[in-house]
Amino acid sequence: MHFTGTQQIKAPVAKVWQFVLDPNKVAECAPGFKTMDILGPDHFKPTLAVGIGAVKATFTLDVQLEDVREPEHAAMRGRGAAAGSAVDMVAAMDLKPLSDTETQMDWTADVNVSGTLASVGARLMEGTAHRLTARFFDCFRQKLEESNDVAGAGATTSAPATGATGSSEAS
C-alpha cells in the first residue's frame, strides 16, 4: 500500500527538523504507542498496539533511520511482528520552508501488512492503514503547533486536525 500526503506546519523548518529527529516525540505520534527502546541515535524499537476491525495486535517495530540530510530529508525503514502478523514499512519525508514560521512536509509511506491481520481485516485494511499513516504525520503538525501555543510563539490558533483524535489505542 502506497500513501502520500502533505502537511503545512506553522513552525520554522529547524524546529520541525528537531522534532522529527527526536524519537520520543515521534513515537508519541505513532498509532497505539506503548513503549520504546532506544538502541542508538538512528535505531529504535517502539511497541505499538494496532487494530483492524475487531482484531488487535501488539507489534514491536524495529525502526532504522536512513538517508538523513539535515534539514530537508529523512527516511525510515521499519519491520515488526505480532502474533501471526507482520508489518513492513518504508517512509520518507521532505521539509521545505514556506516562510520563517511555516514549513511544508511532504511524506510518502509504503506499508505492507501480512498475516492474520491482513486476512481477517482485508476489507478494512487499506482504509485503516491510510488513516493511521495520515494521522501519524498530522500528529507532528498538531504537536508542533501545540508547542507554539504553549510557548506563546506563533499567534494563530490552529484548528483541530481533521480525523485525529489523539487516542493512544489506534484502531
Partner: peptide, 8 residues
Amino acid sequence: NGNMQQGT
C-alpha cells in the same frame, strides 16, 4: 503480498 483475504 499473498495475504488470504477471507480469514473469517
